[in-house]
Every structure is written in C-alpha cells, then in structure tokens.
Amino acid sequence: MSSQLFLSGVSKSFDGFKAINNLSMVIEKGELRAVIGPNGAGKTTMMDIITGKTRPDEGEVYWNDAIDLTRLDEAATARLGVGRKFQKPTVIETLSVADNLNLALKADRGVFSTLTARTGRTQKTEINRLLALICLSDQRSRPAADLSHGQKQWLEIGMLLAQDPALLLVDEPAAGMTDAETMRTAELLRNIAGERSVVVVEHDMQFVAALGCKVTVLHQGHVLAEGSLDHVSANPEVVEVYLGR
C-alpha cells in the first residue's frame, strides 16, 4: 500500500534559523496522526511545506508516492486533495455560511467556469448535508462574521470537508473551545479519519488523548519521538523538552 504523504530529509531555514531540520515522516492513507511539540518546533513550517506555501531547501515531499509536492503551489496542492485548517479560524466573513461552503465544494476552479457556474441540485444537497454535520443549518444565510468562535472553527472544518480532501491538515482546532466543544471536535476528526488521512497539530494533551492515535513529537525541526501517546510520554527526551524549560 502506498503512503498518502511521504516526507524525507526535509530542511528549511529562514535567515540562518533552521525551522525544519532533516524531517522525515510518513502518513498512511486513512491515518489519524497527532503532531505535538513546543513553540518553534516547526509545526507550522511543516504544514507550509506540505501545502506548497514554502519551498524546502532540501528533501523530498511526495503525495501518493508519485507526485512531488515541492513543485506545487497552494492552489495546486488543494486541488490535489490537501485541505488545511488554520490555527486562527479563517472563514470568509462577509459571505454567508452557505456561500462559504459553496466556494469550498469540489468543482472546477478555473476563472471562466467559476464565472458561469450555477449552484445546482447536487450542490445544494451537499451543502445541506454539510450544514447539518457542522450544526449550522439555522445559520445558513447569516454572514460568517456573525458566528461564534467555535462555530467558525466548525464552519472551517465543514469547508475542508466540502473540498473532499484525501488529507486534512488541522492546526490547533481545539484552541479557544469549551471542553464540550473540544470533545465533539475530537469525535468529528476521528470520524473523518479512515476515509481520509488527518494530521492534527495540537498543544492540548487532553485533546490528543481524546484522539487516541499515533503521536509524533517535533522538536527543533525534527522528529524527537513517534508512537502512541503513552509511549512518547515515557520518552525521557520528550519529558525534558516539555518540562525542562
């Protein structure tokens, strides 16, 4: 079976600072993976590299063992099936909730096909399904700006799902959520995984525990430890990194 995402020996430095240092990681198809690490461990840069926002200085990034992601830009990786959720919920504030989802729906992204595109029955059904999934059916016509913080997080996840991606990169989804919302989000992500690969970057250990998946610990741009949460928690180096400072 081929992997969904394959990183090997990836490095990237900014003005002499090595944000990513010889990072290697494999994400299997349908896998749920949590990536943890202290501030500045290179989590965001890693996602930037996978999505084509940043070009690595060296190393390989392959999609399905076939496509070199380092040659693609954000739009291209998105079309390929990489969905990314930012740490800060980013939705299109002035558009309605339904329009936000509509824009995310899988469709031809070309300029002229977008100009002449019509929202047909299949699209409407799909939007309704997603609205129900993220519990925003009542809010469908309201501008996204009116939503609460947690609702925006869900809308963004809904938009990711609308893209029908093969891989979701989720950056600190639980930030700013209530405990109940956090648990619901963990459940949502567990449900998504299986059919799609999901990589979650998170600080909140409770949330990571709730995900119940393989954990990768990043430190200073490379992988410090990998395995179950219990396994990595027992690693003295990890303890050192987390508690030693």
């Binding site: 998105a78 299109i92 558009l95 329009d99 824009l103 938009m159």
Partner: peptide
C-alpha cells in the same frame, strides 16, 4: 460564483488559495 471568489480573496486571500 466568481464574484464570491473575489470577495473571498478580499477577505481572506490565503484561505482562498488553500481552497484551491
């Protein structure tokens, strides 16, 4: 729909890129 994409670019350019 293109008009909505334009608004999306105006409000959240990065998001729009990651939408493809």
């Amino acid at each position: 729909k293109l008009g909505k994409v334009l608004v999306a670019i105006r409000d959240a350019e990065s998001r729009t890129r990651f939408l493809g």
